[in-house]
Amino acid sequence: MSDHPAIELRDLAKSYGAVHAVRRVSLAVRSGEIFGFLGLNGAGKTTTIRILLDLLRPTRGSASVFGIDCQRNGRQVRAMVGYMPGELGLYPDMTGRQLLDLMARLSAAPVDDAYRMSIVDRLELARADLDRTLREYSTGMKRKLGLVQAMQADPPLLILDEPTEGLDPLVQLALNDLLFELRSRGRTVFMSSHVLPEVQLLCDRIAVIRAGEIVLLASVDEARRLGGRVVRVRFSRPPGDAAMPLPPGMTITDRTSERWTIAADGEIGALLPALAALPVRDLEIVEPSLEDVLQRFYRQQPS
């Protein structure tokens, strides 16, 4: 299992007539990493995930999990996967326990009840709630149940579509701990998310998908470096309106009489001579957040 990437997508495409939901997607997720799959709504995240589970058939290309083709040997693949869908379709007349039991019986690996209940406890889903029907569940409780059913068989690969959606901050922290723990035991986590601070905290690597195409595939640190830095300059008096030449790679993104914000790609030292003639009171260099970087990738128009 470890010789192959946990997930490998090769030139994957899915079209619905003239609509291209996913096109030319290629990426590899290493075994034992937490991988973030990011994109705006409708970018192709869920379509890609559903192809991995053979719920959808690709128009072109292939997908494999631990070297096994997701379409030709879908059952073998799904035997190694725990999946939490972004949109949980649940029958309201079932109880939480009935759902977990049914999913356990359909799993390839036996479910250890003690392990299952430990996840239930850590996600703060009251045990008594498992015997209530799902129509009595809040959105957050349903999401927790969705996470439990995905994790209960302790699969080698977890695919989580928007796992923290609807969870309160404390449960999000508990989930983070659980995912770190799974990674430390060699499990792989492939998660889609909108919540960038969470991705920054959890993920080893990320891919950004936009309009069905991968536009960024990098480690979180590499991605942050792509954003360059931001230099905030405060003045003791207005520096005047004269246009000032900045070194290459530096642009003023925000300008008032008291403050400039400069986007800086490259060495900050090159900026200092240019500022020397100005009445600078304070200089602040800000490392970019992943959010800054990703917003740029989200907003760029596809070529």
Partner: peptide, 15 residues
């Protein structure tokens, strides 16, 4: 099952 998306839970198993 398809309309309610329950199929996503069922068919994500080795069924």
């Amino acid at each position: 099952e398809i309309e309610t998306r329950f199929v996503d839970l069922l068919m994500a198993r080795p069924v």
